[in-house]
Simulated assay, not measured.
Amino acid sequence: MTSATKPLRADAERNRVRVVIAARELFASHGLDVTLDDVARHAGVGVGTVYRRFPNKEALVLAVFDHVLDELVEHIDAAVAEPDAWVGLSRLITDIAEKQAADRGLYEICTRADFGQMERISAHFIPTMEALVSRAKEQGALRPDFEAPDIGPLLIMVAASAELTRAIDPDLWRRYLTMLLDGIRAGCSSPLRIDAPTHEQMDQAMRDKHA
C-alpha cells in the first residue's frame, strides 16, 4: 500500500458516511421508497459513488438501520428483564411507538417483509414477546384473551395515527396509545369475538401487502 492511496480511501469512507447520513434523513422523513438517486442528491455526491458502496437499496437500508435494530433488541431484552411484566410490556410498546412515530423509515422496515429485516426482528421478538405476554397474564395484569401476535397490529395502528395527526400535534399519537394500553389491561369488560391471528398469518399478511 502506498501513501498516495490512503487519502483516496479516507475520501471514500467520508463519502460513505455522507451517504448513510443522507439516507437516514430521507428514510426518516419520506420512508423507504426514496431512490438511491435521491440519496445521492441529498448527500451531494455522484450516483456512481452511492452504487459503488451500496449495490442496491436493501444494502443501504441494512447499513442505515442495523444499529437501530440492535437498539430494538435491547429494548426487548430490557422489557423481559423487568420483574413487573405489565411495566415491561407497556414500556416496550411505548418505546417502539416513539421510534416509529419519529422515523417513517423505521416504521416501514418493521412492517415490510420485502427488505429482509423482519426475519431478524421476528427471530428475537416472537419468543420473548410470547414469554412476556404469558408472564403478564400470570401476574393478572393483562387481559387473558390478548396474544403476542396482537402487538404488531397495535403498533401499526399507533404509527398510522402518528402519521395522520402529525400536522396537528406530533405527540397526539400518545393519546391513542394510552387508550390502546388501557384496552389490553386485565379487567376490560368487552370480550373479543374474533381470535388473535398467528405469527405466521401476520407474517404472510405483511408479505401480501407489499407483494
Results as ranks from 00 to 15, higher is better:
Ala97Asp: 11
Leu72Ser: 08
Glu119His: 05
Asp95Cys: 08
Arg91Cys: 07
Lys99Glu: 13
Ala113Trp: 01
Asp84Lys: 06
Glu71Arg: 14
Pro55His: 09
Leu72Thr: 08
Asn56Gly: 10
Gln117Tyr: 00
Pro83Ile: 04
Asn56Thr: 00
Leu92Gly: 10
Asp66Asn: 11
Glu119Trp: 00
Glu82Ala: 03
Gly105Phe: 05
Phe54Cys: 09
Gln117Asn: 05
Asp66Lys: 09
Leu92Pro: 10
Gly88Pro: 09
His67Leu: 11
Ala78Phe: 06
Leu62Ala: 15
Ile109Arg: 08
Ala102Trp: 01
His67Trp: 02
Glu82Val: 00
Trp86Phe: 12
Glu71Lys: 11
Val61Ile: 15
Ala85Ser: 12
Leu92Thr: 04
Ala113Lys: 04
Trp86Asn: 03
Ala85Phe: 00
Ala101Asn: 12
Arg53Trp: 07
Val87Tyr: 01
Ala102Thr: 09
Ile96Thr: 07
Arg112Lys: 13
Thr94Leu: 00
Met118Thr: 14
Phe65Tyr: 15
Phe65His: 13
Asp84Met: 06
Asp77Ala: 13
Arg104Thr: 09
Arg91Leu: 01
Gly116Trp: 00
Ala78Pro: 05
Gln100Ile: 07
Gln100Leu: 08
Leu60Gly: 06
Thr111Ala: 10
Ala78Cys: 06
Ala63His: 08
His67Ser: 14
Ile93Val: 15
Glu108Pro: 08
Glu71Tyr: 10
Gly116Thr: 06
Val68Ile: 07
Arg112Ala: 07
Ala101Phe: 07
Val68Trp: 03
Ile93Ser: 05
Cys110Ala: 11
His75Gly: 00
Leu89Gln: 05
Glu108Val: 07
Asp77Phe: 01
Ser90Trp: 04
Asn56Leu: 04
Arg112Asn: 07
Ile76Ala: 04
Leu62His: 11
His67Cys: 01
Arg52Asn: 15
Ala102Phe: 00
Leu89Asp: 07
Tyr107Asp: 12
Asp84Tyr: 02
Asp114Glu: 13
Arg104Gln: 12
Ala78Glu: 12
Lys57Trp: 05
Leu72Ile: 14
Ala101Trp: 04
Glu108Ser: 10
Arg104Pro: 00
Met118Trp: 08
Ala102Asn: 14
Asp95Gly: 01
Leu92Trp: 12
Asp114Arg: 10
Ala63Asn: 06
Trp86Glu: 12
Ala113Tyr: 03
Cys110Leu: 15
Asp103Leu: 06
Thr94Cys: 02
Lys99Met: 14
Phe54Ile: 13
Leu106Val: 10
Ala102Leu: 13
Gln100Met: 15
Gly105Trp: 05
Tyr51Arg: 15
Arg104Met: 09
Trp86Gln: 10
Leu92His: 11
Gln100Arg: 14
Glu82Phe: 00
Ala78Ser: 13
Trp86Gly: 03
Arg91Lys: 13
Leu69Tyr: 13
Ala101Arg: 09
Tyr51Trp: 13
Ile76Arg: 02
Lys57Tyr: 07
His67Gln: 13
Met118Pro: 01
Gly88Arg: 01
Ala85Gly: 02
Pro55Phe: 07
Cys110Lys: 03
Gly105Pro: 11
Asp103Val: 06
Pro55Gly: 08
Leu72Pro: 00
Gly88Tyr: 05
Val64Ser: 04
Leu92Cys: 09
Gly88Gln: 04
Ala81Thr: 06
Ala63Val: 02
Glu98Gln: 12
Ala63Trp: 01
Leu92Gln: 10
Gln100Pro: 02
Glu108Gly: 08
Glu98Ala: 11
Val61Gln: 03
